[in-house]
Design a protein around this nucleic acid. Structure first.
Lengths: 224, 224
DNA sequence: GCAACTTTGTGCACACGTTCACAAGCGTCT
DNA sequence: AGACGCTTGTGAACGTGTGCACAAAGTTGC
């Protein structure tokens, strides 16, 4: 299954959940694509990787398709997650309700700052980073979320990997290296803003360029 | 300039900043690529869109290249940003130091909850969502960050756009539509985890499949 | 000044992802 | 039963992105 398709399945799943809550029983690729914000042909091709779960002339059964995607992504089981770094962002992540409702259970919170140990966040006690290996092992954690400062990110990832974690979601603004076989995704808040800034500047630049062109035309009109 | 290249420029910028702080004056594409975690050919092609700023046989001058990328992305000016939705995530974003240091100034915080109004977060008073249009206009805000619950996201985006915001970074787990000419990027925490879960499951599944294959081989060996 | 070495910038081939367009299949209506 | 309308699933064309490989261009050493 193409990586691009995998990245869109959660999108479809969310759209289907919304439809199910509204009591919709069947949906066409056109409708589902619209509510997921993608092209209908792309949606159909994506879904075709799961199998032929649609009915021609009718569409897709919402509940059935939802179950198929859930199974494909692996959300039928629940995943234990450890969050490392309980600063502002770590707090927000620990309290984020969207994880639990999608099969991700925050199993442990870890921080290196001794003054934070024992603090209760989202119903869990913050534990020492020294115990990271033990925690990962005891709770059978496969997914780690890194919300530490940039300088700690590589070390934390190394230790997570050494402890047996094979999937890491990194929020720290740092490039970290992981060995083959470990999946690493990164979410970088300021990178996203920088990409927006680039386009924003180009919008303004385009306006200025147009003005320059208009000025040139004007000059030509005056001189000609 | 290709979109994929634009998305990598902030990465290079960060790597260059790190090098500059270490006092490195020049860097080869090979070294820079390594610290940004990309292929060196890709790095060179990306940089070639900016111009021919390297010296053959030597490499790139760190400070100069940094300045060029900064200019290209549009970080020579600073951008006023409004954060809408001051919940857990909004708090974390408001306090995130990485924005200010990269030319993004949090100019206003807005929330719809009347009990939160006037609360001071990161040195700013939380203002009423009713004043959104006024705030955007008065402070010359071009970039909006949406950290509201999912159900409010579309309305907030509509109002931001109507007020003149042309770039939006959406953290709400909802698909929102924006008119042509408005840039929308979304950061979805649980989607990222779901993608990891998919690969995690496949790793385990692959292990099981291997076992099944081994079992088949074993069976054949026994029967044959 | 020239040869040897290093590194950039880029043409080209390939892989990946997207979109179009349409045949195949299902339900409905007469 | 057969014709008709609708929607899926997919082959094929297209566009974008990646990576190799090498000529061009610079530096260093003699």
């Amino acid at each position: 299954m193409p990586e691009a398709t995998v990245a869109r399945l959660p999108l479809y799943l969310r759209a289907l959940t919304t439809l199910a809550e509204r009591g919709v029983a069947t949906v066409s690729s056109e409708e589902l694509a619209a509510s997921a914000g993608v092209n209908s042909a792309k949606l159909r091709k994506d879904l075709s990787y799961l199998g032929s779960y649609g009915t021609r002339g009718v569409g897709y059964e919402v509940d059935f398709l939802r179950h198929q995607i859930t199974r494909e992504i692996g959300l039928t089981q629940d995943w234990a997650v450890v969050i490392v770094g309980i600063g502002n962002l770590g707090h927000a992540l620990a309290n984020y309700g969207g994880f639990a409702s999608r099969g991700f259970r925050i199993a442990a919170l870890v921080d290196a700052d001794p003054t934070r140990l024992g603090e209760e966040v989202a119903g869990l006690n913050v534990r020492s980073a020294d115990d990271l290996e033990q925690i990962v092992h005891d709770l059978g954690i496969a997914i780690g979320v890194v919300a530490t400062p940039a300088r700690a990110a590589q070390l934390v990832c190394d230790r997570l990997v050494a402890a047996g974690v094979t999937s890491i979601l990194n929020f720290a603004p740092a490039i970290v290296q992981v060995p083959e076989g470990v999946d690493l995704r990164k979410v970088d808040l300021s990178t996203e803003l920088q990409i927006l800034a680039y386009h924003e500047q180009r919008k303004n630049g385009a306006a200025l360029a147009l003005t320059a062109e208009q000025a040139a035309e004007l000059a030509e009109a005056v001189n000609g």
